[in-house]
């Protein structure tokens, strides 16, 4: 059923405020960023020189930037795959009707309410090599005390886990909502047909949850690319020796610490293109298999 507007201009008029806001706060800055990426500029563009694609050429021939790509890839895969798997598992458990379920659910969602700075500080305390709780148990159980944040590989592992943990609450909320909206009769039919919990999950629950999973996949990917910044800033500042220097942190560092505005603009264009491309790919591949239910 299509509703009719009294005048054909009215819908455009109603859209105008949104469009104006988008134009001022979204499209204009994006265009400016594209433009700035073709300049070599410092001091917020006070001194600038047109250099064409030099910034892009430099980025893609820089060993450090390519390294940052690899780091970001590992970080993103860790955050998205581990994050989704663990939160789905927790959501399934939390979906059981047991006493105090509501309290459990509330507690599970809690980490999401923390700001990245607070979450980062908590992890810093936990992972402190000499006074941290993690190494207290490590020492008691295995007799070792790893340098979590000064060893490159461990540092990457630590920030990946922290970033994943930070987003668990968000994922659990959506999975729980998805699980509770599943049509009970189908699950019952599966049970009547003699399917075990394992089969029910993989054949019925998981496919039915696919819209939620798909949505979370995209949100988590975007989170991994952009949202990991705060934690990394607090925990490692991209170090040691760039071991946790994900693309977004590299960009921040180049722009706000090193004052290389043109180079940073080029990096944000690259990030922008990557996220758009990834989202498109996801819509084309995974999107096709997503079951949205209904008719």
């Amino acid at each position: 059923m299509r509703s009719k507007f009294p005048s054909k201009w009215l819908p455009y008029l109603l859209l105008l405020p949104t469009l104006a806001l988008c134009a001022i706060f979204l499209y204009y800055p994006v265009i400016q960023t594209f433009r700035l990426s073709t300049y070599r500029a410092i001091l917020m563009g006070l001194h600038r020189k047109y250099v064409g694609f030099e910034n892009y050429v430099r980025l893609f021939t820089s060993a450090d930037y390519l390294h940052s790509f690899t780091i970001t890839f590992i970080f993103a895969v860790g955050v998205v795959v581990l994050g989704l798997a663990i939160s789905l598992a927790i959501a399934l458990l939390a979906n059981h009707k047991i006493r105090g379920a509501r309290i459990y659910r509330l507690l599970l969602i809690w980490p999401y309410a923390l700001s990245p700075a607070v979450a980062g500080s908590i992890w810093l305390f936990l992972l402190n090599p000499t006074a941290g709780v993690v190494n207290y148990f490590m020492k008691a159980l295995f007799g070792i005390s790893p340098d979590w944040l000064t060893d490159g590989r461990l540092a990457l592992l630590a920030v990946t886990i922290a970033a994943m943990w930070k987003n668990l609450g968000y994922n659990i909320v959506f999975f729980l909502a998805g699980l509770q909206n599943l049509p009970g009769e189908i699950l019952e039919a599966a049970r009547v047909d003699g399917a075990g919990p394992w089969t029910t999950f993989w054949r019925v629950t998981f496919p039915l949850l696919s819209p939620t999973t798909f949505f979370l996949l995209i949100m988590n990917l975007i989170y991994a690319f952009f949202g990991g910044f705060g934690l990394i800033m607090v925990m490692t500042e991209g170090g040691p020796n760039k071991a946790t220097n994900i693309l977004i942190f590299n960009l921040y560092q180049d722009a706000f610490r090193f004052h290389k505005w043109g180079l940073a603009a080029a990096q944000s264009v690259i990030l922008f293109i990557m996220v758009v491309a990834l989202t498109l790919i996801q819509f084309r591949t995974t999107g096709r298999r997503v079951h949205y239910g209904g008719q």
Partner: peptide, 22 residues
């Protein structure tokens, strides 16, 4: 140096790479 902050970070990366034996 106009790029002192960046130079500091680069020096540290080098030191960290040496210390880690990379």
């Amino acid at each position: 140096m106009g790029t002192f902050v960046e130079a500091r970070s680069t020096i540290l990366d080098a030191v960290e790479a040496v210390l880690a034996g990379e």
